[in-house]
């Protein structure tokens, strides 16, 4: 499936910078490192819980760089007033995980 990822290269660079600043271990960020960042958005916790569900694609309780970009993308869109989807639309699935 050759759909372009909705996370644009310049956004991905910004999200990667945030990811690296949070001190990933083995290329992964644990939930307790990501949680305060998402809480900073001031979005309701149930929305953030859904953002996590959608972005932790392999359900391992940690986010890698691509999963973190999905989470940040959803948070930024939610802050712009767009609803967080109930399931991840294909263009939001990172190309590395299709």
């Amino acid at each position: 499936v050759d759909i372009p990822w909705v996370v644009k290269p310049e956004e991905k660079m910004k999200f990667d910078t945030i990811f690296d600043s949070l001190g990933p271990v083995g290329g992964m960020l644990t939930g307790d490192k990501v949680k305060p960042v998402l809480l900073n958005s001031k979005l309701p916790v149930d929305i953030l819980g859904r953002v996590w569900e959608l972005s932790d694609l392999n359900r391992d309780g940690m986010l890698d760089k691509d999963e973190f970009s999905v989470a940040m993308y959803l948070v930024y869109r939610a802050l712009e007033g767009e609803p967080v989807p109930m399931s991840l639309p294909p263009p939001l699935v990172p190309p590395s995980k299709r």
Binding site: G31, D32, V34, K35, L38, V45, D46, L48, G49, W52, E53, D56, R59, D60, G61
Partner: peptide
Amino acid sequence: QYPAGGSSTNPFL
């Protein structure tokens, strides 16, 4: 820490 039956991988539940 997590509610029974909740996802133990989701830090927001």
